[in-house]
């Protein structure tokens, strides 16, 4: 049972239909596993579908096809009541700490909302005690429980968001750009907190971000998405030191490193062009318009995600 990955995503598809005759393939045939107690980093440019993947796993969006198994349970196949029981085990931390907390709730009530919904505390005193414990766990004080979100800084609000996610003792948390809105020094505080909590509580994370250096720091495995598809997926170190897909290479080369001498000495190969529109995509490899290796074959046939080295998956016919 414990060998089974906590999250198994199989050929997941989520399409949107913005207008008649248009189809936006936000998530197109995505598969991956997240073993218990580990972190999967999901990176890619805006509009590549990483947030949609996170939301579809939690069934905040209904899938179009494919499946998401949480601890062997089909998240999209269960009844409403069974789903509610599942929501206690899976939680989400949102990007914007300013918009994701109800301004009319006190911090205590925000944190306790999940506890109330699932009836986890029998008495008022138990509930209060639990709120205090959660706030202290994320580095806030118990006095903060009676305050309102506007009284807090961005970093503190993100801690409230984390406390809210932890309130129902989940096993799995989707962190959707959880640190993007914060200053660097505060980002480090939140990342350290997330990693400590993982060590203490054995949490499993899907860490969605566009900041590659933070992903490298926190993730065990990393998946790279481009226009709705996973183009490469490997152990984090392997992916960063030995990227195979031309998109991953371009993405890594574009990240400036906080090291002036290295920046001055390095040869720069910039990826040209921009991400094309995800609406009504052409058949063939999604990346071929920007790819230096693209051939006619790439323009007609979808590349398959195959195992190029043990545990290193890549969707490109030229590697």
């Amino acid at each position: 049972m414990s060998d089974l990955p906590l999250i198994q995503v199989r050929e997941l598809k989520k399409y949107f239909y913005p207008k008649k005759g248009q189809v936006l393939k936000a998530v197109d045939n995505v598969s991956f596993d997240i073993p218990r107690g580990t972190t999967l980093g999901l990176v890619g440019e805006s509009g590549c579908g990483k947030t949609t993947v996170g939301r579809t796993i939690l069934r905040l969006y209904e899938r179009d096809s494919g499946s998401v198994l949480f601890d062997g349970i089909d998240v999209h196949g269960v009844s409403r009541r069974e789903y509610k029981a599942l929501t206690r085990r899976m939680q989400m931390i949102f990007q914007d700490p300013y918009a994701s907390l109800d301004p009319r709730f006190t911090v205590g009530d925000i944190v306790a909302e999940g506890i109330d919904n699932h009836g986890l505390c029998a008495t008022r005193a138990e509930r209060t005690e639990k709120i205090y414990r959660l706030l202290e766990m994320v580095g806030l004080n118990r006095e903060h429980a009676s305050r309102f979100p506007h009284e807090f800084s961005g970093g503190q609000r993100q801690r409230v968001g984390i406390a809210r996610a932890l309130a129902v003792d989940p096993e799995f948390i989707v962190c959707d750009e959880a640190i993007s809105a914060l200053d660097v020094s505060i980002q480090a505080q939140v990342i350290n907190l997330l990693m400590e909590l993982q060590g203490e509580l054995g949490l499993t994370y899907l860490f969605i971000a566009h900041d590659l250096s933070m992903v490298r720091h926190i993730s065990d495995r990393t998946a790279v998405m481009y226009l709705g598809q996973v183009v490469e997926h490997a152990e984090t170190d392997e992916l960063f030191t030995n990227p195979l897909h031309p998109y991953t290479k371009g993405l890594l080369a574009a990240v400036p490193r906080a090291d002036p001498r290295w920046e001055r000495s390095r040869e720069r190969r910039l990826m040209t062009g921009e991400v094309p529109s995800p609406i009504n995509p052409q058949p063939g490899c999604r990346f071929c318009a920007r790819c230096p290796l693209a051939t006619d074959e790439c323009r007609h046939e979808d590349p398959e995600l195959r195992e190029a080295a043990p545990g290193h998956f890549v969707a490109c016919r030229h590697v």
Partner: peptide, 15 residues
């Protein structure tokens, strides 16, 4: 700031 050039060793960032 974690440097992208450095291997992750499970160590903490200096917040």
């Amino acid at each position: 700031m974690p440097s992208t050039g450095v291997r992750r060793e499970g160590k903490k960032l200096i917040a």
